[in-house]
């Protein structure tokens, strides 16, 4: 059984079915990239894994435990599954350091000194030690997103979900954020990420899953997906990406 496993997951908003029988296996230390057109359900999928959205059918399990459905301790699950959003969502009334240490201190009960210490180590690694006491509105988009990644990593999660984390960034800031993801992957963190950065996905991912209208239309190793996609839709999508100069 895979480390993170989604079996036949359905999700709808009212009558609108957004996820339609999603099945996906993510092994430990793997990087899985979700690709697909805007609106195909990538964000929704990530949000259901983190328990931010209820699902109407199917099952999600982590390390053998079912983590979907009624009665699960969402707060506990969320300490093991981190998520980073496209729009950073840093807390504007807290410094970078306070953003990072909030959850370790208030959820895990780590002491302030210890939390600060660990946060500073992580900030140093992403090159932001000097910004520890800066408020988000004094940081560039790339810096904010790096802090947001550190905020998720500081909880030492088993899995980290990244939802188009570079889409809101100016092109020249994308690399500084993706390099951190590469580091995390190299360290063996399990990562599921929705992305439009195809060359990055090709380089870093172990598995690519192509989503179309709420289904995983096909998935496989990057080389196969990018060079010999089985599905016509996948081919079309990649073709459009190439035309847009993104691959």
């Amino acid at each position: 059984m895979a480390f993170l496993e989604l079996t036949d997951v359905d999700k709808s908003y009212g009558d609108h079915q957004v996820l339609n029988g999603i099945t996906l296996q993510v092994e430990k230390h793997q990087v899985v990239c979700l690709i697909g057109a805007s609106g195909c359900g990538k964000s929704t999928l990530l949000r259901t894994i983190n328990g931010l959205e209820e699902i109407q059918g199917g099952e999600i399990s982590l390390d053998g435990d079912v983590i979907s459905g009624e009665g699960v301790d969402l707060n506990a699950i969320r300490t093991r599954i981190g998520i980073v959003f496209q729009s950073f969502n840093l807390f504007p009334h807290m410094t970078a350091l306070e953003n990072i240490t909030l959850a370790p201190r208030r959820v895990l009960g780590v002491s302030k000194a210890e939390a600060d210490d660990y946060a500073m180590k992580l900030l140093t690694r992403v090159g932001l030690a000097d910004k520890a006491n800066a408020y988000p509105d004094k940081l560039s988009g790339g810096q904010q997103q790096r802090v947001a990644i550190v905020r998720a990593v500081a909880m030492n999660p088993d899995v980290i979900l990244l939802d188009e984390i570079t889409s809101a960034l100016d092109p020249e800031l994308v690399a500084e954020v993706l390099n951190i993801v590469k580091d995390l992957a190299a360290e063996g963190l399990t990562i599921v990420m929705a992305t439009h950065e195809m060359s990055f996905a090709r380089e870093v991912a172990d598995t690519i899953a192509f989503l179309h209208e709420g289904r995983v239309l096909e998935s496989g190793p990057p080389d196969q997906i990018f060079t010999a996609p089985r599905e016509e839709r996948t081919r079309e999508f990649l073709h459009r990406i190439v035309e847009a100069g993104r691959l």
Binding site: L102, V107, M155
Partner: peptide
Amino acid sequence: SQVAASRSLGLSYGKTMRFVVVPQ
């Protein structure tokens, strides 16, 4: 999205109110 960010870190509804929403 502030609530989502806070809940996604494992903070409960009450802690989200106390540390994230009410101060803002």
